[in-house]
Amino acid sequence: MLLKSVNYVRPESVTEALDILSSNEGAAPLAGGQSLTNVLKHRVASVDLLVDISALSELRAITRAGDGSLEVGACVTYDEIDHSPDVRAGHVILAREASHIEDQQIRNRGTIGGNCCLSDPTNNLPPLLVALDATMNIRAVGGTRHVAAEDFFKGYFLTALEPGELLVSITIPPIPVGGGAGYVSLSVATDSKTIVRAAARVRVDGVIEEVRVVLARVASVPIRHHAMEEALRGVAPTAELVRAAAELIGSDVEPISDGHGSSEYRREMARVVARRAVLAAIEEGGRK
């Protein structure tokens, strides 16, 4: 397909990339390009200048800190996450979910930063990063700021990024002792577009001490279900109590209806995937 004429530049540092992005109104960063290329083909967004950040070494590192937290550069690919010993050392769930994104070719190019910055509600990583209480590290010419993943996703294809800003890395805290994470999707087919999904993180010490339950595809962005979390806090981690808590997902969520499922179906399935994600998180915590 023939694209609209476009300028292309490959900067050599993040500083250079930020200078270009902030001084060109029609500039957009190009990372793995596994969504942006199609956007350009369909001419649904107008980009005058593509700033290819994909090879910048500053954006390509995975670092595991002494406290067990993980920092993943924005241009690390899904396949690199999947095969990273540092990711697998403490955040196996991130490696596992990265390994289930679409197909091998896309995993070899697509990046964690692109997955987040596109803010497509069907994308795999945003709900997981909200559940894991990740922090998005954002740079602009003027400096760096940090936004909780929970506050980063603002709407369909909309994030907290301002013009001229670049997501440079994502920091994920360690999964606490006695804790675990779970992630369950109901998808159209294996490793494909999701109908509804849930991610959870728990810490159990006799009773459930901490819990995050995040639902995706029931709204334009991943949402925490605070009522379900509240019902789980301080209770024994039993299947019955988790089931009862999941029943609180009700008319407060209003998912869309489309060819893959009605709003009612999505809501019903949200209860199922939320329950299973929490149980998986509890089970993982119990194994440690």
């Binding site: 397909m1 694209l3 292309y8 490959r10 190009l30 390009g33 596994q34 290329t37 199609n38 593509l50 290819d52 994909s54 396949d79 091998q104 070719q105 896309i106 070899n108 190019r109």
Partner: peptide
């Protein structure tokens, strides 16, 4: 060394 779809890349990206 990586399997990719060549319709999802621009030629200058392959420089």
């Amino acid at each position: 060394g990586k399997l990719v779809k060549s319709c999802m890349m621009l030629a200058p990206q392959a420089d």
